[in-house]
Design a protein around this nucleic acid. Structure first.
Ligand SMILES: [Mn+2]
Ligand SMILES: [Mn+2]
Ligand SMILES: [Zn+2]
Ligand SMILES: [Zn+2]
Lengths: 146, 146
DNA sequence: AAAAAGATGCAACTTGGTTGCAAAGTTCTT
DNA sequence: AAGAACTTTGCAACCAAGTTGCATCTTTTT
C-alpha cells in the first residue's frame, strides 16, 4: 500500500482539498507535534486566522485531526493517524511547563479505567505535565554554572 | 481528629483568612465539583471577578485548590483533599459534553504509566469525556418519545 | 454564460483571563 | 490611641484566543 498524497488523504475523509486546507494539513504534518490555532497562524502568515479556524473546525468534524487538551490554555490539534485504534485510547501526551511544547508519547498507550455505572465514555485524554528532556538538560547546565 | 473550620484550613496552608477567601472556599466546598472562575463568580455576585481571580491564584500557589483541565475551554478548580496522595496520581475526572459539568470520579485512581527516559513528570491529568448518567437518561426518554 | 453553492478575508465581537490603580481595611509602631 | 506601613479589594481598562457576519472571490452546476 503506497503513501497517499495530502489531497487523497483529505478526499478520503470527505473534505474537499482546497488550497488553504492543503496548506494547513501540510504545516501540521511538517511540524509533527500538536499545534494550537495560533501556532498554525504563526507558520502560515498568508492565511487569515478565521480561515484557519474554519479549516480546523472542519478537520475535526471529519476526523482529519483531533483536539487534545494540554494545560496551556489553548487547544492543540494533531493529525489523526489511523495506524492504531485512535478512537478510544490513543497515546499519552506530555506538556513541558518550561518550553510550552507538547509532545506525543507515541509509544505510551493510555491505560483505560473502569468508570462508574451510567457514565458513557466518548474519549479519553491522558496528559502529563513536567519538564522535557531538552529543558531538563538546560537546567542542569544552568545549575552547574551557578 | 476533629474537622477543621474553613479559617483553620486556610491558616494551615499559610493563607490569611479574609472574608472573600472564606466565601470562595465555602462556595467551592458547597458545590463540591470542579468550578471555573466564572462558575464561582455566578455563585458569588457580591465579589468582583478580579478578586475571585486573585483568591484562586493565591489558593493555587498555597495548594488550597488545584486546577484541572477539562476540555471546556476554561480551567476548573477544586479543593485539594489530602486524604489520598494527590501530588502525583489523584483521581480521574469526567466531563459531560451535554450538560458541561465536570465530575470527580473519586473512586477511580489514575493509572500511572512509564514515560520515556529524560522526561520529568510533575503532574498527571486523566480526563474522560462523554455523557453523564443524568444526561444519558434524559436522552433515552427523549428517544422513546420521538 | 448565468446562477447557485462554497470558500475566504476582513473587521467586529465575545469571553475568559489579567493588570494598574486608588480606595478601604488591617496590622504594626510609636 | 494616632499615624505610618502594608494588604486586600473593586473598578475599569486591557489582552489574547476564539468566533461570527458579511461582502467578495472561486468553484461547481445548470
Ligand atoms: Mn499525539
Ligand atoms: Mn477531582
Ligand atoms: Zn521543554
Ligand atoms: Zn450531563
Amino acid at each position: 500500500m503506497k503513501a497517499l498524497s495530502v489531497t487523497e488523504k483529505l478526499q478520503q475523509k470527505d473534505v474537499k482539498p482546497t488550497a488553504n486546507r492543503i496548506l494547513v494539513y501540510e504545516t501540521m504534518a511538517k511540524l509533527g507535534c500538536p499545534l494550537s490555532i495560533s501556532d498554525i497562524e504563526d507558520n502560515l502568515l498568508s492565511i487569515d486566522k478565521s480561515s484557519i479556524f474554519r479549516v480546523i473546525t472542519l478537520f475535526v468534524q471529519h476526523d482529519v485531526v483531533h483536539a487534545i487538551e494540554d494545560g496551556s490554555g489553548s487547544l492543540k490539534y494533531e493529525i489523526c493517524h489511523e495506524d492504531l485504534l485512535h478512537a478510544l485510547g490513543g497515546h499519552v501526551h506530555f506538556y513541558c511547563e518550561k518550553c510550552h511544547h507538547t509532545f506525543c508519547l507515541e509509544g505510551v498507550d493510555i491505560p483505560l479505567v473502569q468508570i462508574p455505572e451510567g457514565f458513557e465514555s466518548k474519549s479519553v485524554n491522558y496528559m502529563i505535565k513536567g519538564i522535557c528532556p531538552s529543558c531538563c538538560k538546560k537546567n542542569e547546565i544552568g545549575n552547574n554554572l551557578a
